[in-house]
Simulated assay, not measured.
Amino acid sequence: MVIRENVLRKYQEIQAVLDEDLRITLSHLEMEERAAVLALDGMMEKTCSLIQEIEQDQARLTAALDQTETDPDTMSFFSYSEQPDVQTTDRVVDLLNRTDPSSVRLDEAKTEQMLSLTNNMLVLIRAQTPIMRKLIQSYSSEVRLDPDTAHPKLIISSQGDSAAYTDTWQQLPDLPGRFDTTLNVLSLQGFSFGRHYWEIDVTGKTYWELGVTYPSIPRRGTTESCWLGRGEESWCVEFFDGEYTAWHAAVPHQLPFTRRFSRIGVLCSFPVGLVTFLEADDMTPLFCHCAVTFSDALHLALCPGHDHNGLNSRPVVICNTSAPTSLP
């Protein structure tokens, strides 16, 4: 009887692991699907715009040709009409290239990894390690914060893995790359291809901002675009007084979460143009920004916020999760 109960309990535990893994995996697949749909919608809008321009060019050419039939003096002006319109031809070729189904690339690398992980499901069940956690953590990249970008009221650890607010304005070199108004700091490393993942510990904090940014983000003065997510150059999630908000291009997205998370994951994927924020303990997506393509290298960006009378004095810490050497 005891053996029966133990076996039943073990299978129930396995089922719970599989159910949780299925939930997380499906949520990420849905996120990828939304990104693909947005990318295709963008291609369709560009295609419609090009078609309209080509139709307008065609109408102008038809009107001009009609005019030549009634006005012989214009024949010499349109003597080139027997030759193809090079600009229109180039646009048609460009349109065909943009709408060629073979040019829509699927995320083959992730698909192969998913298939490999699926084939080893028994190993994962035995280890009780969810697929998506293992996959995302395989993209972990180590970064160090660049103290030359940090606001003078931020203390950057000697290892470059944490940032904390201090009420004292530090006497630091007035470098052009240093934020002088917003409490931001960027990573020393920038990334321009592949997939990259970081986890940041925000335990005990009442205010923080985490995200990624192009190096072109404004850093001087009081302009709002210096804040993370307020310009086209950056994407972020902000936590303030119990509320979570995602930002990009000054557009806020209120998030339906009330629990105070202790560790946030940031995942950027160049192949599909995604910036995803996750609750790192169970890999639940918080918000996904779809950029389709990135135009520059991305740097991790952190803002630990003011201390709020001592309630927000703890630093934000990059956990630098080591990427697994191999996937089971």
Score class of each variant (00 low, 15 high):
Leu61Ala: 14
Asp21Tyr: 03
Tyr80Gln: 07
Glu243Ile: 04
Met44Cys: 10
Asp148Tyr: 07
Lys205Gly: 05
Pro218Ala: 03
Met43Pro: 00
Val316Leu: 08
Cys288Asp: 07
Leu154Asp: 00
Cys226Pro: 03
Leu106Ala: 15
Val272Trp: 04
Leu106Gln: 14
Gln58Tyr: 13
Leu106Ile: 14
Lys10Gln: 13
Leu188Ser: 13
Leu145Gly: 08
Ala291Leu: 01
Ser216Ile: 04
Ile156Gln: 02
Arg314Phe: 00
Leu122Gly: 08
Asn184Val: 04
Glu13Leu: 10
Tyr165Gly: 07
Gly221Gln: 03
Ser234Asn: 07
Leu18Pro: 00
Thr149Trp: 04
Glu5Trp: 12
Asp100Trp: 09
Gly231Pro: 01
Ala36His: 04
Glu279Ile: 10
Glu209Phe: 02
Leu172Cys: 04
Thr276Lys: 12
Cys319Gln: 14
Ile217Tyr: 01
Gly177Ser: 10
Thr88Lys: 11
Ser81Asp: 03
Leu122Asp: 13
Asn320Thr: 02
Gln137Ser: 12
Leu22Ala: 02
Asp41Gln: 12
Gly231Phe: 04
Leu50Ile: 02
Ile54Glu: 10
Asn120Pro: 03
Phe179Lys: 03
Ile155Ser: 02
Arg105Phe: 08
Asp296Thr: 08
Asn320Gly: 01
Val104Cys: 09
Thr206Asn: 12
Leu18Ile: 10
Glu13Pro: 00
Thr321Pro: 01
Thr258Arg: 14
Val275Trp: 02
Glu33Asn: 10
Leu154Ala: 00
Val104Ala: 08
Leu124Ile: 01
Phe77Pro: 00
Cys290Tyr: 11
Glu224Ser: 14
Ile217Asp: 00
